[in-house]
């Protein structure tokens, strides 16, 4: 029985859409454009976040030890560091090794190091953190704790610019949230107005349906479907457009982006993100119809 009803609902929905297709198309375009803004913003954000993650992966904590520690004392520091749950691995770097890698890094200019009478570099521990802790907050916290260990002279980790980068991404994320809400709200208004027009243009039919004993939900369902379709359609439209724009960007600007971003390829929205956006579109549709229904019930 419900299956037949669904069939009639689908028919009515198709008929509704066909009868005011200009309005529906405009609404779809408006919702699509709005969601496109949101999706592009998310795309930028996820790519920036990818860069951040990449940088975060390279983040290590360097613990400079006091010179003149005995092997036993050094081992104690190393054990204490390893014991922390955030720590994935620790590598000891002797002053000699440090000097050698410094020499390698300096290349041609390395000969100035030969003039040194004494190795000025302290022994150090390179601390790699586990994945979930490779972010600025966690690193700062771990670094602070480690710096208080006995035998540790100094701590160093990714520079202040990273702090600024992460702060920037964080601001962008908050902006995304508020901008997103605003844009979704705008979509709701667009779909809701389209539905309202639909309700008015089918006033007679709705009246008759009520008189022959249709339930409110029977009357509403085609509008609900139309609204849902507009929300999902808008999201799909936005994602399709974004994908085309993204391909264009990759072909024309990909190299400059990679240079800026440290050889990270720009990538499209992840599958979960894509699904989330379509889901958001669907939610916009559902909310729009519920809002509209509340104004069009038979007064009793």
């Amino acid at each position: 029985m419900w299956a037949y009803k669904l069939l009639y609902h689908l028919k009515t929905t198709v008929q509704n859409i066909r009868e005011h297709r200009a309005t529906v198309l405009m609404s779809l375009a408006a919702v699509g454009f709005t969601l496109l803004l949101l999706a592009s913003y998310l795309l930028l954000l996820t790519n920036l976040q990818a860069i951040g993650e990449r940088l975060g992966k390279e983040l290590q904590i360097m613990l400079y030890l006091e010179t003149g520690l005995s092997g036993k004392e050094r081992a104690r520091v190393q054990d204490a560091v390893t014991a922390r749950e955030e720590v994935e691995g620790v590598e000891y770097c002797s002053p000699q090794e440090a000097l050698r890698s410094l020499g390698e890094a300096m290349g041609e200019a390395a000969h100035v190091l030969k003039g040194l009478e004494e190795n000025p570099l302290p022994p150090s521990l390179e601390v790699r953190l586990k994945k979930p802790y490779r972010n600025l907050e966690a690193i700062e916290e771990v670094a602070r704790v480690l710096s208080e260990l006995k035998g540790v002279a100094d701590v160093e980790y990714g520079g202040g610019w990273m702090k600024r980068f992460f702060a920037f991404v964080r601001v962008l994320r908050w902006l995304a949230l508020s901008l997103g809400l605003l844009l979704l709200f705008a979509s709701v208004i667009v779909i809701s107005s389209t539905l309202t027009l639909g309700f008015y243009s089918r006033k007679e039919e709705i009246e008759i349906l009520r008189l022959v004993g249709a339930t409110e939900w029977y009357i509403r369902f085609p509008f609900f479907l139309e609204s849902l379709l507009q929300g999902i359609g808008g999201a799909v439209l936005a994602l399709g457009l974004l994908w085309i724009l993204f391909q264009g960007f990759r072909v024309n600007m990909g190299t400059s982006w990679s240079l800026f971003a440290g050889w990270i390829q720009p990538h499209f929205l992840s599958t979960p993100m894509t699904i989330t956006l379509i889901f958001l579109g669907a939610m916009v549709g559902v909310i729009s119809s519920l809002l509209t229904f509340s104004r069009f019930s038979e007064e009793r």
Binding site: M1, Y4, L7, Y8, A214
Partner: peptide, 11 residues
């Protein structure tokens, strides 16, 4: 037909 469809009768 409208008055029958709302009852969910087969087409």
């Amino acid at each position: 037909a409208l008055a029958l469809q709302i009852r969910g009768l087969p087409p």
